[in-house]
Write a protein that binds this DNA or RNA. Structure first.
Lengths: 338, 338
DNA sequence: TGCCGAACTTGCAACGTTGCAAGTGATGGT
DNA sequence: ACCATCACTTGCAACGTTGCAAGTTCGGCA
């Protein structure tokens, strides 16, 4: 089915090279020849073979975005931003999901086998660490997202988790809340996000001269709604439940919200809630969710830009960029308008 | 950086072909030779060049999933299912987002340039129709998702929108609701989903001997939360607001829910809500959302299976598969447990 | 008339891989 | 001693494309 340059050339009675010149708008091609070739191209429905072109040119025009979970809204929204940024530069983004599975991460990022189809990778690792990534055999440029890898030889974009968590917690303190809890702590070595946010949480409390009550810092396995709902149920079962909760992402907060409301308690009157990520769900929940809003566009823009620089041969030292964030005040701490 | 077979061969003092044989575990290779080659492979950190392999073998092991919007939870959840199914067969899925932009859809699906990197495509079109797809120049197999294309020469998986909408509406009728509204009608020729669901909505009302009140059928531009919120506001502004609303997807329903609750009305006491898609958000909203639950796993499984069949040379007539669905009863119509 | 350059066209090689079929050398049987 | 057989190894060509440099044709000018 798929016609090749050679077939077109034979039909048009010219050389393969000339057809290529027509297809690529090259050099001078006589009008007559161009017309003849064009006719053959149309008749055969010629489509260039992207694989051969890539082999020949060393460029595919494809960037891979490798994420833990696409059905986590934060990643889905980030993906949109990355796709938009890459499109500006003429690149197409393809996304793949690892579920944080080390085998899959390795397969996609480390082994050239699959990775080499792409000009570059933007990768948010969960399982792979510093050590794994350091001796990557493939030469495809990579930009890292997230907090997993601290000291890498690779470009890296993150947000200041400690600072952001501190900001969120301070907000709850400023509201006058007395028993402030946190949902999202993580012990697993490969999940640093939770640890960093707990660090910020504690720092804020200590800065305010508050004691950190261990049972109010709840660990979770994942950052999903169900984990938030379960952790909140535990908090409500305490002899002295909290009057405010900082959830380490919006999904946890939405899960927690569901638990709180289902017990007939009110947010923020009985319990104030702060989330993290600023996903769209949180803007449409009732009450809407006060949250830390990382600048997803900045993250995407930096990621794409760094990658493009590398593609153009930039050999400078790996960049370490900290993306901005703001605290979005909404109903889950501010209350509803009358 | 990236070593080639030739470089390995030179280092090991054997032919390129022999290295290839070692890499691919071919034929008989003497233990001694294998060890020697293996050492060279390791020392050079050889990784096979996927592009060259693809050109040579005609197979990349990559399937593309082309969707309108990744940050719509339904698509994100469907993506997960497709990735899981494809992994079973040893294929890697890459996802791309079109935003329903005809230019992008064409670029990705029609022009071999980008599409040809993949062995097959699973494509949910918004803008491209029957006519466009019929004379696709590329020979890469395609499986279509969604209702856009009716009579295609391509494999196609859909759900019975009319029947599902009827079921949802009948549920509201059975609850004894008197003024039942719908949110999600669409006029645009390229958005058939809304039209089909309206068809089912009307059919259910008529079957129950009810009149269809035109102003209770609200059109939207997109199926997003904001559209649902706005449409619900219009409904509430009517002299006689509805006491039940069928929203054509869960995002519309969540937007509508937000509007209802923010006016101090109750769901389902004042207004009952039914959605469509069964996304996770709807299970954690308060109240949780009664919804039509399409069998996403079945859709994914069929899509991948059909595609794999084509890849293996299946030339049979295009399949037209209707995926199953159920009505999930939750609090937005059933009320909350005491 | 002959030469030069412009305008256009082309063949060759290479990107890195693998199928094919042939090559090499040792072994064993007669 | 010879040949068939076996175990292993290899060169060539091809997948479809494009860079390079050389080729061809022609008109214009001396």
């Amino acid at each position: 089915m798929a016609a090749t340059l050679r077939e077109v050339a034979e039909r048009a009675g010219v050389s393969v090279r000339t057809v290529s010149n027509v297809v690529n708008d090259f050099h001078q091609v006589a009008d007559e020849t161009r017309a003849k070739v064009q006719r053959a191209l149309d008749e055969l429905g010629y489509q260039p073979n992207a694989v051969a072109r890539t082999l020949r040119n060393g460029r595919s025009g494809l960037i891979a975005l490798v994420l833990p979970e696409l059905d986590v809204p934060y990643f889905a929204e980030l993906t949109r931003a990355v796709i938009e940024q890459a499109a500006v530069a003429g690149y197409t983004v393809v996304v793949d999901q690892t579920d944080g599975d080390p085998v899959r991460e390795r397969e996609l990022v480390m082994r050239g086998s699959r990775a080499a189809m792409f000009d570059g990778l933007i990768f948010n690792p969960l399982a792979l660490g510093d050590a794994d990534l350091r001796d990557r055999p493939s030469s495809t440029p990579v930009v890292l997202l997230g907090e997993r890898v601290v000291q890498g030889g690779l470009d890296h974009i993150m947000i200041d988790n400690v600072g952001a968590a501190e900001l969120a917690t301070r907000h709850l303190i400023d509201l006058g809340r007395q028993r402030i809890a946190a949902i999202g702590d993580q012990f697993d070595e490969t999940r640093r996000t939770g640890q960093l946010r707990t660090q910020g949480f504690r720092a804020a409390l200590q800065a305010a001269g508050r004691e950190v009550i261990p049972e109010l810092v709840r660990p979770v396995e994942f950052f999903h709604r169900s984990d938030g709902a379960a952790a909140m149920a535990e908090l409500l079962a305490l002899p002295e439940p909290p009057d405010a909760v900082f959830c380490y992402n919006d999904l946890l907060a939405l899960g927690a919200l569901r638990t709180i409301l289902s017990r007939g308690l009110r947010v923020p009157e009985d319990i104030a809630l702060v989330g993290f990520d600023d996903i769209e769900d949180g803007r449409y929940s009732t009450p809407s969710l006060t949250t830390i809003s990382p600048d997803k566009n900045q993250i995407a823009q930096n990621a794409v830009q760094l990658l493009l620089n590398r593609l153009e041969g930039d050999r400078s030292a790996p960049a370490e960029i900290s993306a901005g964030y703001t605290l979005e005040l909404r109903e889950s701490t501010a209350g509803r308008p009358a």
